[in-house]
């Protein structure tokens, strides 16, 4: 079985947030609750502050703390290494949101974050939190895919509705391969500078594995023992690629 993982090259990431927008369209999300964000951080004072950023999808940890605390076992890890939520079992207790060290989980029933409240305009039918005018055909509550119902927690699924249909044994889901493009997660497919790679971490021949080893991929908050399956490439040299001006591409 594959163990899907993602590599994000911070030397290439421009912080354009096309990934967030693509995610929003693919997964029926609204601003402020995308399954994936780009986090910005400003350091230093004028006149010479530095701005750094990094995208934050769900890390799909090997040892997900969210899964271990879930009192109803609604959060689970699939055989192909993806952490998903069974919306039929989730009771919305939000313990997972406290346990997740990366803060990638969402509960959207409370006060709307933006006015006008889009969800009040497009009211959901039955259990669903809203009824987006444009929506993907997929709705799979047992895998936490589709429009979020009321009263449950949601998060990035690595676009499970796409990657789970990929041919078995594929080492990399590369958006430039026409045969595979439909199976690539939305954020990877849309990334304009091609900063994202998606593939099988269990396959030594996959491009993601080669990149991690060649460019010394790192995982965030490794000390928590969560062992994320999302790796960041920070560039060579003493200064990492999270700061644009430090990038090797600038110095060349």
């Amino acid at each position: 079985m594959a163990k899907w993982g993602m590599v994000i090259d911070l030397e290439k990431c421009t912080g354009c947030q096309a990934c967030s927008t693509a995610c929003q369209m693919e997964n029926n999300r609204l601003p402020g609750e995308n399954y994936q964000d780009v986090l910005f951080y400003k350091e230093g004072k004028q006149p010479n502050p530095t701005l750094s950023w990094f995208p934050r999808p769900c890390m799909h940890c090997e040892e997900p703390s969210c899964m271990h605390v879930c009192p109803t076992k609604a959060t689970f890890k699939t055989e192909d290494g993806v952490v998903l939520i069974d919306w039929n079992k989730c009771i919305g207790c939000k313990y997972c949101m406290i346990a997740c060290p990366y803060g990638v989980r969402f509960y959207t029933d409370e006060k709307p974050l933006h006015e006008p409240n889009i969800k009040a305009v497009f009211k959901g039918e039955g259990d669903l939190s809203w009824n987006p005018p444009y929506k993907g055909p997929q709705q799979d509550a047992t895998h936490g895919v589709g429009i979020q119902p009321n009263g449950v927690v949601s998060k990035c699924t690595f676009c499970y509705h796409k990657i789970s249909k990929a041919p078995k044994g594929t080492p990399d889901l590369d958006e430039s391969n026409p045969a595979l493009v439909e199976f690539v997660p939305a954020c990877v497919r849309t990334c304009a500078p091609k900063a994202r790679y998606f593939g099988d971490l269990d396959n030594p021949k996959s491009q993601v594995n080669q990149l991690i080893s060649a460019k010394k991929g790192v995982r965030l908050l490794d000390h928590t023992g969560n062992k994320p399956q999302v790796y960041y490439l920070t560039g060579s040299g003493a200064a990492g690629g999270a700061i644009p001006s430090n990038r090797s591409t600038n110095k060349a």
Binding site: Y41, N48, V218, N246
Partner: peptide, 23 residues
């Protein structure tokens, strides 16, 4: 949590800054 993560991770992803690039 996002703020803490960004602060912690910005330092981690960068390693020591060797030079102030604006100069």
């Amino acid at each position: 949590k996002a703020e803490q993560l960004t602060r912690g991770v910005a330092g981690f992803l960068r390693a020591p800054v060797v030079s102030d690039v604006s100069q």
